[in-house]
Amino acid sequence: MTMPPALARFLAAVEARDASAASACFADGAPYANVPHPPVVGPDGVRDMLAPVLDRSEHVRWEIVTSALTERRCFLERVDRFVIDGREYAVACTAVVEIDPAADRITAFRDYVDLGEWRARLAEACTP
């Protein structure tokens, strides 16, 4: 199975550091949760969540380590790499993504990351 088009567009938009294009891949009302934080909802919520880190980054690469894909659900084990002020910050992450293939939109996105590791690695880079 190849990656569903909506998910492929989302990942390409993240790597292009384009929060608006990334959020356009989401259905209205679709939750995006960085577990254990409460989810943001819909394209506007996704854009507002992604924009600060994408805008701050000079380069972004979400490296897919392992994937399991169906038409409606995708599991992605990733290493998220952000280059900020010339320094790379890499954090392991796992996502479960739900897709509506008829609408070609993401209907739910759950990222699971060790928040202690995330904060330890990116806190200084994301502080203004």
Rank of each mutant, 00 (worst) to 15 (best):
R81I: 09
C93L: 12
E71S: 14
A19Q: 01
A95W: 06
A120K: 06
Y89N: 04
A24R: 09
A102L: 10
P43G: 13
M3L: 15
R105T: 00
V79W: 06
I64F: 05
G29T: 05
E124K: 06
P101K: 06
E63D: 14
A16R: 09
V65E: 13
L122E: 02
T66K: 14
P43A: 04
P39T: 01
W118F: 14
E88Q: 11
P31D: 10
D44P: 01
H59V: 08
A92Q: 11
A68W: 11
V91N: 04
E124Y: 01
D28K: 07
D28S: 14
A92G: 13
P31R: 06
P52H: 01
E88M: 11
V35I: 15
G29M: 08
C74W: 02
D100W: 08
G45V: 06
V40C: 07
L76C: 07
A24K: 04
P43I: 02
R119H: 12
P31M: 09
D55V: 03
S57N: 05
L7Y: 07
F109I: 02
A120Y: 03
V46I: 00
E88V: 12
D44C: 00
L115R: 06
C74N: 08
V60C: 01
R56C: 01
V79G: 05
W62C: 10
A33R: 15
E71H: 11
Y32T: 04
S23N: 00
I106K: 09
A68P: 04
A12I: 08
H37L: 14
R105V: 07
P31N: 11
A92R: 14
E77G: 11
H59S: 07
E71M: 08
V113H: 05
R72H: 13
N34P: 09
G116T: 10
R72D: 10
D18I: 09
V97A: 09
A92S: 13
E124Q: 07
V79K: 14
A13F: 10
A22D: 11
T70H: 12
E98V: 02
A22P: 11
I84L: 05
L69T: 15
P128W: 02
A8E: 13
P31W: 04
A90G: 11
